[in-house]
Design a protein around this nucleic acid. Sequence first.
DNA 1: AAAATGATTCGCCCGGTGTCGAATCGTCGC
DNA 2: GCGACGATTCGACACCGGGCGAATCATTTT
Lengths: 254, 254
Amino acid sequence: MVVVEATKDEATVLGDAEISAIGGLLADRARCRVLMALGDGRALPASVLADEAGVSRSTASSHLGKLTDAGLLLVETHGRHRYYRLAGRHVGELLEKLTQIAPAQPVRSLRDGNRAAHLRAARTCYDHLAGRLGVAVMTSLLRRDLLTGGDGTVDAHDPIAGYGRDAEYTVTEAGWAFLGDIGVRVPDGTRRLVRYCVDWSEQRHHLAGRLGRSLLDRFLDQGWLAHRDRSRSVKVTDAGTAVLAEKFDITWKT
Amino acid sequence: MVVVEATKDEATVLGDAEISAIGGLLADRARCRVLMALGDGRALPASVLADEAGVSRSTASSHLGKLTDAGLLLVETHGRHRYYRLAGRHVGELLEKLTQIAPAQPVRSLRDGNRAAHLRAARTCYDHLAGRLGVAVMTSLLRRDLLTGGDGTVDAHDPIAGYGRDAEYTVTEAGWAFLGDIGVRVPDGTRRLVRYCVDWSEQRHHLAGRLGRSLLDRFLDQGWLAHRDRSRSVKVTDAGTAVLAEKFDITWKT
DNA sequence: AAAATGATTCGCCCGGTGTCGAATCGTCGC
DNA sequence: GCGACGATTCGACACCGGGCGAATCATTTT
């Protein structure tokens, strides 16, 4: 005869409702695909997420609403677009834990750890540069007044991601000279010249738009960066390290 | 116009089905209560879990079946009882992550970390000792042949949790002498004298049964152990540390 | 101002699943 | 052996939640 003592401590009592609520959100494949598409911190518009999840716009909208209501996603309105991204580092970590458990853990645990680290260090986002490297480049340009703008709420020289309206960045005269110097040529086009993306893993802005793309293209063309396997993560070559140091005043470690 | 490049890398493609499956399991309050009841690694029979979750036996049985099928729970049959426990460390960690996110994180993150650590170090399980301390005591007794038995598949002196049938532990003559020496008196009763529990957080056996209870009682009576706040975790006092070192050959660090 | 585009809301359908009680199977104790 | 007890299976019921298209709202573009 086993005597069961009172074991309903506080931690056990409060929580099951909240946890099951989160479980309910994770219980849907479309929502999981949305979360995984945002897994590396990108901010994506609703329509892209709908395609990514393979459901209609209306269905996606419903899912996105639920995820934001629950606080797993944040939304930022830019014109007629609404960009969604993960609400915090913890959400990304939760996803990582889940993927670890999901397939009864295959062998590649170490490899996966590296993958995540690499993604945070340097990756592409759409067609431009993101991650710590992307933010470093953006910061470098702002510090030397080659680029000006930002929402100015904190520090015009720090691309910190605020919650204000559009931060309008513009290239200065010195900026154009610098870009010419390193061989960046920006083609004409209807797309906005300078845009920014919120880099979630760093909570900072990185450079996007036509200029952001041209810059990344130049880095890849010159062999300063190279795509790592077939993922979005990129590797800084020795030549790239040198260029970053000389031209951008960035010391890139490993 | 933003060009979205092909970003469906392997990690994103495989996974959403498995993750949503786990989400589906977490989506139910009763199942969450079951998981949280098992959160510290205890192994509990189905009926207790049914009560803990507040549902009927049949419903609980259904839930337990789903959780074990999915590999989140392990089950061990002892006579007419079936003991369920978490399938691994990762499951516990997943639960921790979830509780962190659940209530939009309150302030007490540090405190919770300590709580979990304390539980793993030393806690009560029903009415006996568990956690690292519980396993250490068990090991000490086996090493000195004060207790013999175990399923013998690996090492008779290591209370490793195997998957064999009941491990029958018995107290030796020297064992009784030792117990008398430290003042443990085991009252009569119908309950089995020596039993073991699977200590999940250590994947080892710890001492249960009438003897396990008497041992814990002695430790508490003498002030060698003290309950921490109102939880199941216990604290080793200075006197306790001394006794563990002298009598059990256990060095207890903080 | 009108047309185009992104996003959300609404109404409807349908499949999946939690819940229980009754019945069944297996083990323990007298 | 016979009853007591723990656990699971089965059938029936109710309800929640995902899915889509059409309509609506908001913003940008021509």
